[in-house]
Nucleic acid binder design. Structure first.
Length: 520
DNA sequence: TTAATGTTGCCTTC
DNA sequence: GAAGGCAACATTAA
């Protein structure tokens, strides 16, 4: 054991169930554990202080956990591929380990790394540690076709190999070289905080999320939740409350997203709990089902070209969303919680302050921005979510915006969320609004969801005049949502017609070659 | 080809 | 609180 190993942390910011890291340790006396802060990522316009801060805190925890085992985390800054290749060369790396990514930007880099590194006679180990199932395996089971519904996915998953059992964290980890100072790679002296990134425009005060980062925290939240066995066994996602003042779901998404909690650990611990119940809730609504949804989105993101956009995306309906200045203005109001619909604004305010909101709150605001009310492209809403959510996840986020905008996977556009009605069901008193839109806190129950309906004297008594202290509704929901359904119907018809034409031509052209290549 | 199905709508009626 | 109408989508199973 004399080699130098490089373990690259991307997601998978943890020591438990980290197979590549464990493989790296097996065969080296020196291990460089590195995280690379991509300079493209350091932009408050694209990545909020909450999201970046949560990531940095996760790294800090990782560093502490590494130090407990005789190592420490090295955080570099730059373009990931350049940093990796530079380190490989300078430190004569024998072994490179990392967790594979399904997203297009990761996929390309993975292929590049595996190819070039193998050519240089360096041992490479990577795995699919961020997900339960090997996506290539699932796709093969479906003859290479991307599954687009949960039932199809469940069938495929049931005939795929059982997800691997998690492995424990290593007890000892070989240290990086003493005085580790690469020549061509910029590294931080210690794990950076937001204060160290002021030059990029970050303000440490802007980090307001109450979520605590780290592997220990993620595992603790998981264990506390799984202890409530009855709750686990009867969990049904659609029945949880978006307006709860404390999360009514597991709220494990931030930890799963950066990988400080292993999805396989959660999966197997969950199944253990379910085993002790004769009857329990089932996918797609159960807790187990939530993990399968996550898998499905990763699989779709992995196998669908241009999944991050409407155009050139084979799964996505082409819908003529509003563009231009008016759309930008409305988008900004939506982002900043200024639509004049208290429920929507409360959710958006929670998104910006906490970096998290309940899944159904995401539905309400996403529907409102796209097909429901504002008729603005899901891509723009997706970007706003990606900026603020501490659980931001490329696959899940893109999938959900397809779904909510009726661009793919879900098409029942006549089922539309009401910005007044939807939250009333779980929060008739409007406590969620009172918390997240404090200027409305004194409104009587009768008007809390529709403050513009309140008589002037009621507005004055509540200390908030509509149109002055809080905006009037940006649109009239009833009217625009009706009109939008008509527009969607038209767009659907046009898409069907457009799809029918080229498909016919292709079928004729491809008939022979297809038959020939059946064995592929 | 038709029938059943689809994680999470809203409103009115009983 | 449950049920049915609303005006009706696409995908999958049969």
């Amino acid at each position: 054991m004399s080699g130098v190993a490089l373990h690259w942390f991307r997601k998978g910011i943890r020591l438990h169930d980290n197979v590549p890291l464990t493989k790296a340790i097996e065969s080296c006396s020196t291990l460089i554990p590195i995280f690379i802060l991509d300079t493209d990522f350091l932009d408050p316009k694209k990545v909020s202080a909450n999201r970046l801060g949560f990531l940095l805190d996760s790294l800090k925890c990782l560093d502490e956990d590494l130090q407990e085992r005789g190592s420490r985390l090295i955080v570099a800054k730059g373009k990931p591929s350049e940093v990796i290749f530079s380190l490989i060369e300078e430190f004569k790396i024998n072994k490179l380990t990392f967790e594979r990514g399904t997203e297009p930007f990761n996929k390309d880099l993975d292929d590049e790394l595996i190819g070039i590194v193998n050519a240089n006679d360096i041992e490479v180990y990577s795995n699919w540690g961020h997900i339960l199932f090997n996506p290539d395996h699932i796709l093969a089971l479906n003859n290479g076709k991307t599954p687009v519904t949960m039932n199809v996915f469940l069938k495929l998953a049931s005939s795929a190999p059982t997800p691997l059992k998690p492995i424990p964290a290593p007890e000892k980890i070989p240290p990086p070289p003493a005085d580790f100072k690469p020549k061509n790679v910029e590294i931080f002296i210690s794990t950076p905080t937001l204060s160290d990134l002021k030059e990029y425009g970050y303000d440490p005060e802007a980090m307001t999320t109450w979520f605590k980062a780290g592997e220990k925290e993620g595992i603790k939240i998981m264990e506390d939740f799984l202890k409530q066995k009855q709750r686990v066994a009867s969990f049904e996602k659609p029945k949880t409350k978006p307006t709860a003042l404390l999360p009514d779901t597991t709220a494990l998404s931030p930890y799963l997203s950066v990988g400080s909690l292993s999805v396989r650990l959660f999966y197997h611990k969950l199944l253990e709990v379910l085993k002790s119940f004769k009857r329990h809730s089932k996918p797609p609504v159960s807790l187990e089902g939530q993990l399968y949804w996550r898998e499905l989105t990763y699989l779709i993101g992995y196998s669908t070209p241009n999944f991050h956009q409407m155009r050139e995306n084979p799964l996505c309906y082409q819908i003529p969303w509003t563009e231009g200045e008016a759309a930008q203005e409305a988008l900004k109001k939506w982002e900043m919680g200024q639509t004049g619909y208290p429920a929507v604004d409360a959710a958006m305010n929670q998104l910006r302050s906490d970096g998290w909101m309940h899944h159904l709150a995401r539905h309400l605001v996403a529907c409102f921005l796209t097909r429901g009310d504002l008729w603005i492209s899901w891509e723009l809403g997706r970007d706003v979510f990606d900026k603020y959510l501490i659980d931001a996840d490329w696959s899940i986020n893109n999938f959900s915006w397809h779904w909510m905008s009726c661009s793919a996977f879900f098409y029942q556009f006549f089922r539309c969320y009401g910005p007044v009605s939807f939250f009333k069901k779980t929060d008739p008193n409007g406590d969620y609004i009172r918390k997240h839109v404090p200027i409305l806190a004194k409104y009587p129950v009768k008007y809390i969801y529709e403050p513009w309906e309140a008589p002037k004297n009621v507005q004055e008594a509540a200390g908030c005049i509509i149109g002055q202290d809080y905006p009037r509704p940006i649109v009239e929901h009833k009217t625009v949502s009706q009109a939008n359904m008509g527009k969607l119907k038209k767009a659907y018809d046009k898409n069907k017609a457009d799809r029918a034409k080229p498909a016919k031509v292709n079928a004729e052209k491809l008939e022979k070659p297809l038959a020939k290549s059946k064995l592929r």
